[in-house]
Design a binder for these strands. Structure first.
Lengths: 232, 232
DNA sequence: AATAAGTTAATGAACATACATTAACTTATT
DNA sequence: AATAAGTTAATGTATGTTCATTAACTTATT
């Protein structure tokens, strides 16, 4: 009994010292009512769990990761996840959704910007998305490539729609570039897939500790793509 | 009992009528001694099993594929696999080894060929690798990408060595192209990653049933890459 | 201010199920 | 007769999930 309680306290303290968690929790502050504050804390904890789950799913693969594995990494018991998520698939879904949404939002500002030239937009797209990917430590956007098949039909559909949003932004840039004569005319659909591949798969081979910096690689990547679609 | 036996016979007949199997088995012919012939037939059946297993691993993922699933596709019982393979991991290993070896051997001739121009070599590499990937039905996920983490340490090492061979061939082509002045000088390491990304991820978005043929997409892909590294 | 009612986050135990693998046995082939 | 190919049945283990319960908090009522 006593040891169990002691352990709970230890655990609670541990949670609050987890860097990410404590910072966000602090940011919530005392501005809101206790009710809302609690809800926010819950969602923070939920995101923290998702973060951990994402790492594990990416490292070990979805099916190779058991609820027990998840629980171990999160310092709790498997059952506790069911206070936050409907089931295991739901965890994967939320992980993938977050990753994909962040990818989209890292380039969303380009969508309704008709002023900037397509070339500059392309540079911005590549650099901001690649930069974002390089900044995430463990989990990877490629999880949304590999994990999508384990999702339920509805969830899969939602993710695909999200991804289409990303694609449509990219395609629009290419279309404008071709119309303006800045890019050589090619199949905008295929080419946007090629470009996305280059960016997204960087998370497999790029390392922050490597020979080249994010900026240097980003520049090489942009030059490659830019020449690839017949610019310059 | 009787019905079970009847079913077995049906199954046996079915095996021998499976197109791939019967052709190969016929090809073995009566030229060799009975002992060797039997061994060859065994290995043919084994490869046939590997082929089926590969498709399933590819579609569903390794851990999501049960021995029962495999047995269903191969019209036999799970236990029978243990007459051919040590365990499940062994099946995965052989599948991945085959895939990787085929991928590598389709481009190996480029390695010690100093005659053909780098441009043509690059075209050949891209088209044959992409063509190979496209020929796999049920386009889904990069098995050799995601599957290797489920292999034992030794098996994984072997596969990685094979893959390194692929990389080194690609890098060599790029290096020669830069030296010859056919390609613009860039970082050969990064660029080879970019190229491999483009080719490998095609298995996610390319469909044989789509608007464009393998050849058309292959051409667009090559042009993209070729311009990308500053050719033409 | 004190107490009652309700909520959240966590737990351990129990669950049915599905899994890979094995051993013993039967049938088919040479 | 010997070996190969296949089956049946059984086994131990691990899995995802549910359930009742508890402690700590928050909100509502008096």
């Amino acid at each position: 009994m006593t040891s169990s309680r002691d352990f709970d306290n230890t655990r609670a303290v541990w949670y609050h010292f987890s860097a990410f968690y404590i910072i966000l929790k602090g940011a919530v502050g005392n501005l809101t009512g206790t009710r809302q504050r609690k809800e926010m804390q819950t969602s923070i904890k939920k995101n923290w769990l998702l973060d951990k789950a994402g790492m594990l799913f990416w490292q070990k693969g979805y099916h190779a990761t058991s609820m027990k594995d998840l629980a171990n990494v999160c310092n709790c018991k498997p059952a506790n996840f069911y206070n936050y998520f409907k089931n295991k698939e739901d965890i994967l879904y939320e992980v993938i959704k977050n990753i994909t949404e962040q990818g989209v939002s890292s380039i969303r500002h380009l969508d309704d910007d008709e002023e900037t030239s397509p070339v500059e937009q392309l540079r911005s797209l590549i650099k901001s998305h690649f930069g974002y990917l390089a900044s995430m430590k463990q989990s990877s956007i490629l999880l949304s490539d590999t994990g999508i098949k384990y999702l339920s039909r509805e969830h899969r559909k939602e993710i695909i729609e999200l991804r289409d949003l990303y694609d449509s932004i990219l395609r629009k840039i290419i279309r404008r570039g071709i119309e303006d004569g800045e890019f050589a005319p090619t199949d905008e659909q295929v080419v946007s897939n090629l470009i996305a591949s280059v960016v997204v798969r960087s998370s497999i081979w790029f390392s922050n500790k490597g020979r080249l910096s994010v900026d240097e690689v980003g520049e090489i990547m942009f030059n490659f793509v830019y020449s690839g679609i017949g610019g310059e």
